[in-house]
Structures are given as structure tokens and as C-alpha cells.
Amino acid sequence: MRESRLWSWHIISAVIILAFLGIHMIIMHMGAIWGALGTGSGHPVRSDEVFRRSQQLFFMITYILLLGAALFHGLYGLRSMLCELSLSRILEKAIGGLCAAAGCALFVYGSYVAVAVYRMGEMRP
């Protein structure tokens, strides 16, 4: 059933997000602590750090995976909340379509940025 598949992906994307967003948070939101402990610069948002990471293949691929998983998970959750508000069937289908369209558009934009910044590093001598 369609809804069963969508929900199964909601769970799987949650696990993917736990893994990759976990890494992202450990880098970004514990960066100052790592710096205070002596491992790492302590400034994960500085441009040299950001570009160093963005130009590594591992980060480019995991950013795109995280983007896809998070967009699906978040927009399915939003559509789920809106479909519990006693709306008409047409409106529910429209919301589903809008969420899918917005998700695709944001995914394309985000992936483009990730790939473009990665390729900036390739082009540097």
C-alpha cells in the first residue's frame, strides 16, 4: 500500500538523519568543546573549515544524503499533521503534491550547492 511505503521510508529516513545529523551536530555544535579540549580549532563555522569539509568527497555525499532524508522526513511529517485537520480529500491530495514539489525543488537546489562547492576544490591547482 502506498501509505505503508511512505511511512516505512519516514522511519528509514529518520535513522539516516540520526546517523548523519548526529555527525553534523558533533562537528558543529560541539566544535567549541572540542576546541577547548584541544582537538580541533574550536571554530567549525569559519570559512576555511567549512570549505575544507565541503571539498571532501565524504562530506559532499553525506550532505546530499542528509538533505534528501531530512526533506522527505520533514515534509512527510508536515503533510501528516495537515492531513489530521479534517480537510477535504482534494485539499489533502493538494498538500501532498505541494510537499512533494517543494521537497524536489529544495533537494535540487541543495545538491547543486553541495556539488558546486566540491568542484571549486577540484578546480583549484
Binding site: M1, E3, S80, C83
Partner: peptide, 13 residues
Amino acid sequence: REAEIFSEHGVYR
């Protein structure tokens, strides 16, 4: 019963 139980207004809500 699948069509009702696993519909968009079934167990997943």
C-alpha cells in the same frame, strides 16, 4: 481490510 487499516487515515495517523 487492508485498504481501510493501512490507508492515509488508518494506523499511520
